[in-house]
C-alpha cells in the first residue's frame, strides 16, 4: 500500500507544470524514502529528475518500493479537479492498476476523489554521476525565466558563459544578437533576490534555448534556481523545494562540429 498526503496539494500542480511539456508519460518510483521520477524528453536531449522526500508529506506510507507509470497529460486533467488550496492525498493499492487522488478543501467542506488508470512504461534509467561543477550560479528564478523567454524571441540557441564577473546569456538570429549579463549581487535584503557565482573554472557552453524555456516553467516552485556547468557536460538546472525535495533538469550541450 502506498499513501501520501500533501497539505499544499498545489505543489503537485506546480511540479506538473514543469514536467508536462517535457515528458508525456513517466514512471514514478515510490519507495519508503519518498517519491522520485527520472525521465528523458522524446528526443533524448534532456532529462528530468524529481525527488520528493517522504517527510515532505503529512502521512507517508510505502510498504514496498514500486514503480507506477502515469500519462502526465491525463494526470494534468485529473489535477484540474483540485482547488489551489486543497490538500491532496495519493493512494495506490499494490494489487490494483490504478491510483486514487483525493482533494479536500482546507475547511473540509469539499471532497473530491478521482481514480486514474496506471500504465506500463518501458523506460531507461540513467545513472547521473555526482559531478563537481566548474561553475554554479544561483539567481532568482523569475529573472532566469524572463531572460530565456526574451532571448528565445531572438535566437534558437543560447551560449552560457560564466566568469568571475557573472553569467552571460548570448543568442543570435535574424533580428541580431543579444547578450544579457547577470553579475554577482548580494546587496538585497532577501536572500532569494541574490545572484551568486561559485566559480572553479570559467566555462562556456551552448544549448538549445527552447529547453531552457521549458525548464523555466518550474519557476513557481522556488524563488531561487541554480545553473551548474562543467566543460562539455550537460548543464544542471535545479529548482529546490526547500527541504521537501527538488526538480533537476539536465540538458546536453551542443558541440562544435
Amino acid at each position: 500500500m502506498f499513501e501520501a498526503k500533501l497539505i499544499q496539494g498545489n505543489l503537485i500542480k506546480k511540479i506538473m507544470e514543469g514536467l508536462k511539456d517535457l515528458v508525456t508519460e513517466a514512471n514514478f518510483d515510490l519507495s519508503p524514502g519518498g517519491v522520485s521520477l527520472q525521465a528523458m524528453d522524446s528526443s533524448h536531449v534532456a532529462l528530468v529528475a524529481l525527488m520528493l522526500r517522504g517527510d515532505a508529506f503529512e502521512n507517508y506510507r510505502c510498504d514496498r518500493p514500486r514503480s507506477i507509470g502515469m500519462n502526465l497529460v491525463n494526470l494534468s486533467k485529473v489535477l484540474k479537479c483540485a482547488g489551489n488550496d486543497d490538500t491532496m492525498t495519493l493512494k495506490a493499492d499494490d494489487t490494483q492498476n490504478n491510483i486514487t487522488l483525493v482533494f479536500e478543501s482546507q475547511a473540509e467542506d469539499k471532497y473530491a476523489e478521482v481514480q486514474m488508470e496506471l500504465m506500463d512504461i518501458d523506460s531507461e534509467h540513467l545513472g547521473i554521476p555526482d559531478n563537481t561543477y566548474d561553475a554554479i550560479v544561483k539567481m532568482p528564478s523569475a529573472q532566469f525565466s524572463q531572460i530565456v523567454k526574451d532571448l528565445s524571441s531572438i535566437g534558437d540557441t543560447v551560449t552560457v558563459s560564466v566568469t568571475k564577473d557573472g553569467i552571460t546569456f548570448s543568442t543570435s538570429g535574424d533580428v541580431g544578437t543579444a547578450h544579457i549579463t547577470c553579475k554577482q549581487n548580494t546587496s538585497m535584503e532577501k536572500e532569494a533576490d541574490h545572484t551568486t557565482v561559485n566559480l572553479e573554472h570559467p566555462v562556456t557552453l551552448t544549448f538549445a534555448l527552447r529547453y531552457f524555456v521549458t525548464f523555466a516553467k518550474s519557476t513557481s516552485l522556488s524563488h531561487q534556481m541554480s545553473i551548474s556547468l562543467s566543460k562539455e557536460l550537460p548543464v544542471m538546472v535545479e529548482y529546490a523545494m526547500g527541504d521537501m525535495g527538488h526538480i533537476r533538469f539536465y540538458l546536453a550541450p551542443k558541440i562544435d562540429d
Partner: peptide
C-alpha cells in the same frame, strides 16, 4: 555548426 548530442551519451545506464 553545432551538433546536438544525446543526454544518454553522458550518463551511464544504471
Amino acid at each position: 555548426g553545432n551538433s546536438q548530442r544525446s543526454i544518454k551519451s553522458f550518463f551511464l545506464k544504471s
